[in-house]
């Protein structure tokens, strides 16, 4: 099990396009698994979470089309991500903000246009997730 803090750390410390893409891919998957575990129709967050899940999946899928994404995970898959004590809105919004920042940087530095396009598309999804969770979404 990976905690949301570990995902933060991996993203922050990722060095080079391959590592950033790998960490971003896993972060989107982590976001998705956390959201799936919290989709409760009785909760007021239900609709923002459902829409955020679609953006998380779209972001992950965008990265899978980046040619520099390593074909094998650089870190072993750890199953469902864990939120810990963090408030879900705060935790996911912060992770998606970091994702957007790292992907925008990666898009600027990426050598291939396909990597750049994938990073830009995924960064847009990360921004959408944050906006949906804090109530200023698209």
């Amino acid at each position: 099990m990976t905690s949301i803090h570990q995902m933060h750390e991996r993203l922050r410390s990722a060095d080079g396009i391959e590592a950033v893409l790998d960490a971003a891919h896993d972060a989107f998957e982590g976001l998705l698994s956390i959201i799936r575990a919290h989709e409760d129709p009785a909760d007021g967050l239900f609709i923002p979470l459902v829409m955020a899940a679609a953006s998380a999946a779209e972001g992950r899928n965008a990265i899978t089309f980046a040619p520099s994404l390593p074909p094998r995970r650089l870190h072993p898959a750890t199953g469902v991500a864990e939120l810990g004590d963090t408030n879900i809105t705060v935790g996911l919004a912060a992770l998606s903000e970091l994702l957007a920042t790292r992907l925008v940087d990666a898009a600027r530095d990426a050598p291939y246009p396909s990597d750049q396009a994938a990073c830009r598309a995924a960064a847009r999804c990360a921004r959408d997730i944050r906006a949906l969770l804090i109530g200023t979404g698209p």
Binding site: L45, I47, A131, I134, G135, T136, G137
Partner: peptide
Amino acid sequence: WTPATGPAQ
């Protein structure tokens, strides 16, 4: 209201 308006409507 939109799907992105925020929680607890």
